[in-house]
Amino acid sequence: MTTILALDTSSDACSVALWRDGQITEKFELAAQSHTQRALPMIDELLTEEALSLSQLDALAIGAGPGSFTGLRIGLGVIQGLAFAADLPVVAVSTLEAMAWQQVSRNTGDIVLMPALDARMGEVYWALYRYCQASDSLEVLVEPSVCPPERVGDALPDGLSGLVGVGSGWAIETMAALAPEPQVDCYPRAGALVALAARDFDAGRGQSVDHVQPNYVRDTVSWKKRERIRQ
């Protein structure tokens, strides 16, 4: 029986989830600016309720981004500490892919999903996936990217129809025309994360904690912040 604990702190939400041989148990809270106070207690609460210890887990999983820079660092730090303590492998899962997976159960048939998060500084994080019902899997059409919202439409492949939008990025007015009735109030959740992590772990994609890195996507943010401070 495979048992995996997942944590996501990439947004204003904090969530943890447990995968036990196909069964998912999740805790979810809106915890803006309090991830450091809530992440470990939520993990402890979940493990206690499920009568498990770290030594009984097979792996840990983390929402690796993109998302809040501070949130990603906090989440990875927590998972690194637990992984080192219990000598566990780690599965890193794209935040955007997990958001796309959350929407699969709300739709039927093959669909194209576009998760998007407000990246601040006049940009959005986004990616594009196709869900195939026959294989029950997501195909990556566009890798996680960051750009101004008005440029997203130009980057989409030709011939798309029935696009399903999800995430805070869809609250930006220039995104609204790309998908009908997007799910704006949707946060990354560890329940979807751990389901994808279980598949990756079974496929042998668990990593040593030393090799796990957050996927910030935007790598010039520190430079831009310094420029604003100088100005």
Results as ranks from 00 to 15, higher is better:
166 V>G: 10
112 V>T: 15
60 L>M: 10
60 L>A: 07
58 D>I: 00
18 L>F: 07
102 Q>K: 07
173 E>L: 07
16 V>F: 08
212 V>Y: 00
45 E>N: 06
151 R>H: 09
214 P>C: 13
143 E>V: 12
190 A>W: 07
52 L>N: 05
27 K>M: 06
121 M>E: 03
210 D>K: 13
51 A>Y: 06
155 A>W: 00
145 S>M: 09
128 L>Q: 15
174 T>H: 02
168 S>F: 00
214 P>L: 08
44 D>H: 07
229 I>K: 12
155 A>D: 01
167 G>H: 05
70 T>I: 12
206 G>A: 14
160 L>Q: 04
185 D>E: 15
57 L>E: 01
10 S>H: 05
19 W>F: 14
9 T>I: 13
58 D>W: 00
109 G>A: 15
98 A>R: 03
33 Q>F: 13
21 D>L: 11
101 W>I: 04
203 A>L: 11
85 A>I: 07
123 E>R: 06
158 D>V: 15
133 Q>D: 14
213 Q>D: 10
51 A>F: 09
29 E>N: 08
163 L>W: 12
89 P>W: 09
192 A>C: 09
73 R>I: 02
202 D>H: 15
67 G>D: 04
3 T>I: 11
100 A>G: 12
50 E>G: 05
50 E>F: 00
168 S>M: 05
216 Y>W: 06
121 M>D: 08
71 G>K: 07
154 D>K: 11
216 Y>T: 02
35 H>F: 08
46 L>I: 07
116 A>H: 10
194 V>Q: 05
65 G>V: 08
226 R>C: 07
22 G>I: 10
31 A>Y: 12
115 P>A: 08
43 I>N: 04
203 A>C: 09
5 L>R: 05
89 P>A: 05
116 A>L: 01
42 M>W: 01
24 I>A: 15
34 S>H: 15
52 L>Y: 03
2 T>R: 12
142 V>C: 14
126 W>L: 12
203 A>G: 08
191 G>N: 13
29 E>K: 13
20 R>S: 08
216 Y>N: 02
193 L>Y: 05
51 A>R: 07
193 L>A: 08
212 V>G: 07
216 Y>E: 00
181 E>F: 02
86 A>R: 06
28 F>S: 11
132 C>N: 10
158 D>M: 15
150 E>V: 09
106 R>H: 10
84 F>P: 00
38 R>Q: 11
